[in-house]
């Protein structure tokens, strides 16, 4: 009876609307997917010839991974089965965390920067992970009556969320992109700090905007 109430379903509709608004950006990133493979391979070749510093190689690998994985997620949106897309997304975010923490480890242990860089890398990985997990948490926390009443919206939301990985869309690009820029500029601490600050500010702003608008806090 009350299951079909609009106030129950509106946050789902609201979120789907927000996710739809930024769908236009995705194909542009998808076009860089090929570059995500070609450029790191080229960079590795240059590195073996001694023409490229190692931190630049790391930056290229990070940004190449970002482009390739984003493109892959976009391509999988309508072609892959639910289970395959879901497990591939988990693997993508696990590798995100491994790459960010790995970059910190490299800077601390090999490049001999202070342990602060490692702490910043962990914070950047956590920022990226929480941005991703906030989507899962949203799906998990949908009240049972809403879930039962709006199966169609739930699937659409899950689909839209799974196609992008992070619920608001740009946290991953901000965190991985700024970390790569920091490495490229030879200032990994600044890059990672900017990634943590930028990723969190964007996430907090978007989340607050959503929850206040949805009126469900």
């Amino acid at each position: 009876m009350n299951l079909e109430n609009r106030s129950h379903n509106s946050p789902l509709t609201e979120l789907i609307g927000i996710l739809r608004q930024r769908r236009g950006v995705r194909p542009i990133i998808a076009r860089f997917a090929a570059a995500g493979i070609v450029v790191p391979v080229g960079a590795m070749f240059l590195y073996t010839l001694g023409l490229l510093p190692v931190q630049v190689l790391l930056a290229v690998v990070l940004s190449g991974w970002l482009c390739w994985s984003s493109g892959r997620m976009e391509l999988q949106r309508d072609s892959a089965a639910e289970a395959a897309r879901r497990s591939s997304l988990v693997a993508t975010h696990t590798l995100d965390a491994a790459l960010l923490v790995g970059a910190g480890l490299f800077c601390h242990l090999v490049w001999e920067l202070s342990s602060a860089v490692m702490a910043l890398a962990v914070a950047a990985a956590m920022t990226n992970y929480l941005a991703y997990y906030s989507g899962i948490a949203f799906l998990k926390s949908v009240p049972a009556p809403v879930r039962a009443a709006s199966a169609r919206s739930m699937v659409e939301l899950d689909h839209a969320f799974l196609a992008t990985g992070s619920i608001w869309g740009a946290e991953r690009e901000i965190v991985l992109g700024l970390s790569a820029l920091g490495l490229l500029a030879g200032q990994p601490e600044i890059g990672l700090a900017a990634a943590v600050a930028g990723g969190n500010c964007y996430w907090v702003y978007k989340s607050a905007h959503f929850w206040l608008k949805a009126g469900l806090q």
């Binding site: 639910e82 289970a83 879901r86 497990s87 997304l89 988990v90 693997a91 975010h93 696990t94 965390a97 990985a125 992970y129 991703y132 997990y133 899962i136 948490a137 799906l139 998990k140 949908v142 879930r147 199966a151 739930m154 699937v155 939301l157 899950d158 689909h159």
Partner: peptide
């Protein structure tokens, strides 16, 4: 990350249920 995301996203996500 793999464990928790896998557990929650792959197995107990709302839409699959």
């Amino acid at each position: 990350v793999a464990y928790r995301s896998g557990m929650d996203s792959l197995l107990v996500s709302g839409s699959l249920r």
